[in-house]
């Protein structure tokens, strides 16, 4: 096509469309299906020895077996309890500290260096200490998750409060709103998107730390199940446990997405 051929009319070629990736639901399901079938075919043809990687079918069988004999429910129940306690307590404490750091300069001056110093410590390294303090029962497992959740929550809550538009706070002050009401009606709702985004990170961390938390003295729990399957070289069960963990991750992320849609419907 060229412009300027005398008297000839050509339509203008469309060149727009932008660069806006849109999620295509079918594509993600298809990708899953393709990967799993390729894996299954490789296993069945012998290209992937079962010793090194069990097939998806074997993993499904292992899952079905623990579901059938009731151990799945015990593992899930034990882990969900630990996650629920550890995450909730870690989140409550993290929000309290993080929001205080966002609001009060004293808390901020004290908190930032302490959090920066303690956040990078791998909580798994503290496990022996936690066991000395809390024993080998539930408290040390909950504490492991709690600690892992606490620090990222502090940081996300603190920066979420810090990022509440200053003009809104000025507006509240210009109407002589009492301090507590400015915090409750402007700062906290304004920090909500950042806090909820932090929940996604902290819930993933809780899942990651589950395995570490259940290393010591846990008879039941998905993390304990994965560890013992690893110790016993039962790779199909090990991967079944991993599948459980990632399904749990998907479930939690779906719940959080619902919560976000509800709480942040104004966005």
């Amino acid at each position: 096509m060229s412009i300027g051929d005398s008297g000839k009319e050509t339509s203008v070629r469309f060149r727009g469309g932008g660069f806006a990736p849109r999620p295509k639901r079918w594509a993600s399901w298809l990708a899953f299906a393709v990967i799993i079938s390729a894996w299954q075919i490789a296993s069945m043809s012998g290209a992937l020895p079962a010793l090194f990687l069990p097939s998806p079918y074997e993993i499904a069988l292992a899952l079905q077996a623990i579901a059938a004999d009731g151990t799945l429910a015990r593992h899930l129940g034990a882990s969900l309890g630990r996650i629920a306690w550890g995450w909730s307590l870690g989140t409550l404490a993290g929000l309290a500290v993080g929001i205080s750091m966002g609001i009060w300069s004293l808390a901020r001056s004290v908190g930032i260096p302490i959090v920066s110093a303690l956040f990078p410590i791998p909580k798994i390294a503290l496990l022996p200490l936690l066991i000395l303090w809390f024993g080998i029962g539930e408290p040390s497992k909950v504490a492991t998750i709690l600690l892992g959740v606490f620090f990222p929550t502090v940081i996300s809550a603190y920066s979420a409060v810090d990022n509440v538009p200053r003009n809104l706070i000025r507006m509240g002050q210009s109407f002589d709103m009492p301090y507590a009401q400015i915090v409750r009606k402007i700062v906290l709702p304004g920090a909500m998107p950042g806090i909820l985004a932090g929940f996604r990170i902290s819930s993933s961390i809780a899942l990651i730390l589950l395995v570490a938390a259940e290393m010591i003295g846990a008879e039941f729990g998905i993390g304990a199940f994965i560890l013992s399957a690893g110790n016993l070289m039962q790779t199909d069960q090990l991967l079944a446990g991993v599948v459980l963990l990632s399904m749990l991750g998907l479930l939690i992320s779906a719940l959080l997405a619902r919560l976000e849609r509800r709480v942040l419907k104004w966005r």
């Binding site: 507006m171 709103m177 009606k185």
Partner: peptide, 24 residues
């Protein structure tokens, strides 16, 4: 004040925003 950038709370409805300075 009336602000250049409006300074409305996006999580409150119109009535909620107008009512905000009355609530205390």
């Amino acid at each position: 004040y009336i602000f250049q950038d409006f300074a409305l709370l996006p999580w409150r409805t119109v009535a909620g925003n107008v009512g905000l300075p009355l609530e205390h």
